[in-house]
């Protein structure tokens, strides 16, 4: 009798978990998107076809480098612009045709604009990713997109000379976890839930993540600016670089966010000055309280939160408009290096 009851319990559990996994696969999250990487933490698999449905949700096929491009773009002749950044640039939330990089490419006939964005990449990780790609490809201009979380993330990542990252080969436990969570979106979700439960069981008093530079510690901020400038200088060794300053996931809608954002914009200008990069594209200021002038929200999605999170198609259109106004002149200057002081040695 006990065996029958336990069997019935297990059967019900298994049936509902299998049904949930099938539903998640169909509508939420494709499995097998990432592989472990000693330097980057995780790396996207080349040519993977994914659906990330947490926000928006577009089916995308990644390119030979695991980036959000049509792979044929790498074979096009002519001048090339690479846009480095995190998930705001990678933009898996919107159809590829609607993201800012593709829209910028459409505004620059004859120029290939490539998306080098990678979700959760800090500036040193973007530099590491760029190094791998630059071994095979060239660029005429790089745009490094920075949002207000990059300074916070960078504060927690040690870098060596030349913005190098220490190698951390994944251990057996990490490999096992990665193998499990890569197998099914349900296991990914359960893994995340288990981590939250473990966090909840921890005793109070555990260190909370740093909120990032806010002007409270000028010495630490100076060191951070110097380290980030080193990363930008490293990128600029190969080709001219422009910095693009973006807002964070919650656009500067509150006075406190505005104040913090202004402070971080000033820090990014200091990074550019320290790296000898004269070009800072300020998209942050354009994403103020009402960026489109008609109270339309430019971030967030219907299936998550409209007004918070990554840029939606309207936000990408706004960003592409800013880039399309500024980038042609930068590209012209980049192709005439004598006019660009301090960019090339």
């Amino acid at each position: 009798m006990l065996a029958a009851r336990l069997g019935a319990l297990a059967l019900g559990l298994a049936a509902s978990l299998l049904a949930s996994d099938a539903m998640l696969r169909a509508a939420w999250l494709s499995p097998r998107q990432y592989r472990l990487d000693a330097e980057l933490g995780v790396d996207r698999l080349p040519f993977s076809e994914v659906l990330v449905g947490r926000e928006g949700g577009a089916r995308l096929r990644f390119d030979r480098y695991g980036l959000n491009n049509d792979d044929a773009a790498w074979d096009r002749p002519g001048p090339r612009i690479g846009v480095l950044g995190d998930s705001f640039i990678e933009a898996v939330e919107v159809p590829r045709s609607e993201n800012a990089v593709t829209r910028l490419a459409a505004a620059l006939p004859g120029v290939t604009v490539l998306n080098l964005g990678r979700a959760a990449a800090s500036p040193p990780q973007s530099v590491a990713l760029y190094r791998r790609i630059a071994a095979h490809e060239h660029f005429d201009l790089l745009i490094l997109a920075l949002s207000d979380n990059d300074l916070r993330e960078m504060a927690g990542i040690p870098t060596g000379p030349g913005c190098t990252l220490a190698s951390h080969p994944p251990g057996a436990r990490q490999r096992l976890t990665a193998a499990l969570v890569q197998e099914s979106p349900l296991l990914t979700r359960l893994h995340q839930r288990a981590r939250e439960w473990v966090d909840e069981l921890r005793l109070p008093g555990a260190a909370s993540p740093a909120s990032g530079p806010d002007g409270a510690d000028p010495a630490a901020e100076g060191a951070l600016v110097a380290r980030m400038a080193e990363c930008v200088r490293t990128l600029a060794e190969g080709q001219p670089v422009a910095l693009l300053v973006l807002p964070g996931g919650d656009l500067p809608r509150s006075p406190e966010r505005l104040e913090l954002g202004r402070h971080r914009l000033a820090l990014y200008r200091a990074v550019a000055a320290a790296a000898g990069v004269p070009w800072v594209l300020d998209a942050w200021s354009a994403f103020g309280s009402d960026p489109l002038g008609d109270r339309r929200l430019v971030n967030g999605f219907a299936n998550h939160i409209l007004g918070a999170g990554h840029l939606n198609p309207a936000g990408h259109a706004l960003l592409a408009g800013i880039l399309a106004r500024e980038v042609p002149a930068l590209l012209d200057m980049a192709r005439e290096p004598r006019q660009v002081a301090g960019v090339r040695p």
């Binding site: 009851r5 319990l9 019900g12 049936a15």
Partner: peptide, 21 residues
């Protein structure tokens, strides 16, 4: 016995679909 299956199914459904926070 079927009630044990119902409990298992409800537990699996909660595990899979409960909100993160």
């Amino acid at each position: 016995t079927w009630r044990f299956s119902a409990v298992g199914a409800l537990a699996g459904f909660c595990l899979a679909w409960a909100q993160a926070a």
